[in-house]
Write a protein that binds this DNA or RNA. Structure first.
Lengths: 285, 285
DNA sequence: CGCGAGATTGACTCGGGTCAATAGTAGTGG
DNA sequence: CCACTACTATTGACCCGAGTCAATCTCGCG
């Protein structure tokens, strides 16, 4: 039940007891989803012409650290994140990881495998995850019957393309501080879109992974977060991040003349923050 | 606007005189292409079940400096480059250009517009160009009839996605020299794929544009090219580049990406990485 | 022929990478 | 419960790669 949720296990579970009116769908374990649910998850308007319950998509669970797919593995299915957090990485010729994205609820995985029929990246669960399987064959076959599926696919792929373009722009043009700032804002927005707090959240990834994602070292990420903390833009406690000034983060290009940042200024900021909320900032005086 | 052939012109042209074997296609100006030609151009195996000559795609010519589409413009058509060279750019909040790609023969433009129905980037001709128009509506409509069209689209979009992933990896992990080196190799390969010489070619873009594309300044690009020239890897004369040692360019690096020390592969690689760190410019795998 | 855009090269600066020491945190087992 | 270990995060000191500023050179074009 734990180490590897294989298709066999899922069949065993789902066929174990099938409630007739549920048409084979296992509700409580969230083992199946219909097209409507998939579209909702992707934030794509599903001009619902289909409620056919035979059009169900299987769920699979992955535990922290498990790999959803690896580079070079034969491609046959796409995944949609129903819950949990992951990272996708490229491995260079020396075995070094390059983080490409941090997929979470509503994001699609595996699209890079379509072209060569082999996944071009590796997806790893950063927390326990629940993913929906979209067998690509099935998808394209259904695409000809239900044209919203087709548009869904185009939309998702195009969206992903735009996201990567923005990423390239960021890596090419922004300073370390601006990258970290935008990363935090982006995370906050995504949490907000998922219904979580955009003001206080936990990072699911290490500094190292953030650094890889942003083209920086973990030290620079750590230092930058500390600097933001001193200035009062955020609060940092390990992986707990509090967003204090989203506007400033959004428009930040460069940090104010860094040399003049004295201890006194830092202490002042710290005091304000402590007054504002009950948080333990450990920036020792 | 400029000389943009309209759909009416197409109908006029195609019905004007129909040479039986040409089936209404205007040869001399390369004004039309059928699906087979489009697939060939994209290097996608067209399991040819269609030779229907009513399935023709219009060409459009753009002159150097002209914009094919701009950011925010309503999306309705994709483009395939039949000849010529272009750049696609993002414009940031201060009007600065960020070059995203240098499309040439066989590349597709406009895919980033599908998601929001507005182009997310701007495409500019760096030379006189001949593009094939693929009206998106028409394309999706045909996709349901001829499923190879569908696969074509998925394939092209996925390919583009993989390309951008590689770009992100490069920007995130490689030194200036390695980026320039790989850029040259990539250009050489693409020229080779088009039937041109991969040993001697002309850059269609300025140092500034190359720098923007690679996340560097034009001075760094210029200096790096000069350095490669001195070392004998290439010859440089303004925009004329001669590739002398493609292998060296391909494997050239600098900073061992100490950023990512992967647990599994990391230990194995440590010695090599450290050794590589003492290397100067050249490194052989 | 002169003008302006592009390219090259040098001198200087500094952002961020590297190396290293320390400390906080989580998981494991006694 | 604590001790032990491995991982993660924070911080400081140092320095090098690449950005910035600026002068000069080349070339294409009206």
């Amino acid at each position: 039940m734990q180490s590897q949720p294989t298709p066999e296990q899922r069949n065993a579970t789902s066929t174990m007891h099938s409630t007739p009116m549920e048409a084979g769908r296992q509700r409580q374990g969230r083992l199946w989803s219909n097209l409507k649910e998939v579209c909702d998850l992707l934030h794509i308007p599903a001009a619902v012409s289909i409620n056919s319950e035979e059009l169900l998509f299987q769920h699979v669970q992955f535990k922290t650290g498990q790999r959803v797919h690896t580079i070079g593995q034969a491609f046959d299915t796409l995944y949609i994140v129903n819950s949990g957090f992951l990272k996708t990485v490229l491995i260079d010729e020396f075995g070094n990881e390059q983080v490409l994205s941090f997929p979470m609820k509503g994001d699609m995985l595996g699209v890079d495998g379509i072209h060569t029929r082999h996944y071009a990246s590796e997806a790893v669960a950063l927390s326990d995850c629940d993913l929906i399987l979209l067998p690509f064959k099935k998808l394209t076959a259904l695409g000809r019957v239900h044209m919203e599926l087709e548009n869904l696919m185009y939309g998702v792929m195009s969206r992903e393309l735009v996201r990567e373009q923005a990423m390239i722009g960021m890596l090419g043009a922004l300073s370390a501080e601006a990258r970290v700032a935008r990363f935090l804002v982006s995370l906050a927005d995504r949490f907000a879109a998922m219904g979580y707090s955009s003001k206080l959240f936990n990072l699911r990834m290490t500094r190292h992974e953030i650094g890889s994602y942003l083209g920086l070292t973990l030290e620079t990420v750590s230092r930058t977060l500390s600097a933001f903390n001193e200035i009062g833009l955020i609060t940092v406690d390990q992986r707990t991040i509090g967003i204090k000034d989203p506007e400033a983060l959004k428009t930040l290009r460069r940090l104010p003349p860094s040399r003049s940042r004295t201890k006194a200024a830092g202490a002042k900021q710290k005091a304000e923050l402590d007054a504002a909320g009950d948080d333990q900032v450990l920036a020792t005086a």
